[in-house]
Nucleic acid binder design. Structure first.
Lengths: 158, 158
DNA sequence: ACGCGGAACTACACGGGTGTAAGACGTTAG
DNA sequence: CTAACGTCTTACACCCGTGTAGTTCCGCGT
């Protein structure tokens, strides 16, 4: 039955702006604002004039959700911007089970032991966000939002 | 020689608004704003009508500096407010070598191993701030700002 | 091929809330 | 008395969007 792979396995499908907003748990206007101000552009297809369509991929959804979580945690959008500018240039590795650590204007991706070292020796404020939780949130969002996948899930559950 | 105890030992002396601002590394305006909006009231003596004088104690200085560091880390003052409202009600223990961990609107004071557990099992964004660094910053601020203590330090150094 | 309905993006202006600074005002020391 | 200092009031600029109307494009029926 399952017409799709596991959620987080390199999915090739893309999402419209409206879908992406719903999945990430933000308003469409906010998504639009972030796209226009270069915070998160849709990777699959950017808008080019009125009437065109943005297409977000799975990784974009992760970023959107990370930003939402950071905002909810009370971090200013301005500093989130700096963090992501940095990350885009420096991070290529897979974002699966790592943890984002933000210290001032620099960002580190850690797993397990590394994390502990960083925290022990870190001075100043560190913002710590485990990405596994973010992925789960996004996957739940996809299931709850896209009708066909929801159907698949039901099939699996029964 | 040293006419005072060690910096962080229960010091009884108090500080004026201007002194407190300088030691914490913030503008006087900012200190004033925080006092008027109930973020950090001077414990030793609060303002009671125009022309009266605020007196801050050592612990107040620590709080001021923590807030400054959180702000510098890109956290919105609004959420810092919520955190401190909570902390005032729940935290009575000594703030010596612990670490503040902020998760959403709740705050935890940890030391060492505890910290590791919290971070491992934590969901969402965690803001981590070791207080030892804060205390050092404040003590340096006091030395650099109050003339007599600075003199003491010189005596010790020479 | 053509028109039409609706979804999606765009342009523009506005607004609540927040953090800060300037200056008016009061008080106290000397 | 008055100069120095500290507090209180008010105004302002900025952030982070949102409301709304307009525009473009897609898909579909005919």
């Amino acid at each position: 039955m399952a017409s799709r792979q596991n959620q987080s396995e390199s999915r090739a499908e893309t999402f419209s702006g409206t879908q992406a907003a719903r999945i990430a748990g933000i308003s469409y206007r906010r998504l639009d604002y972030w796209a226009r101000t270069d915070l998160v552009r849709p990777t699959a297809a950017d808008a080019q004039g009125s009437g065109s369509r943005r297409r977000y991929n799975y990784r974009d959804l992760l970023e959107l959700r990370v930003i939402k979580d950071l905002l909810d945690a009370g971090i200013r959008l301005e500093s989130i911007r700096r963090v992501f500018d940095y990350m885009r240039d420096h991070v290529t590795s897979d974002i699966s089970a790592a943890t984002i650590v933000i210290s001032g204007s620099s960002v580190i991706l850690c797993d397990g032991d590394e994390l502990f070292d960083v925290l022990r020796h870190g001075q100043g404020v560190l913002n710590v966000l485990p990405l596994s939780g973010v992925r789960d949130e996004v996957d739940r969002g996809i299931v709850a939002t896209t009708p066909d996948v929801a159907a698949d899930e039901k099939d699996l559950a029964v």
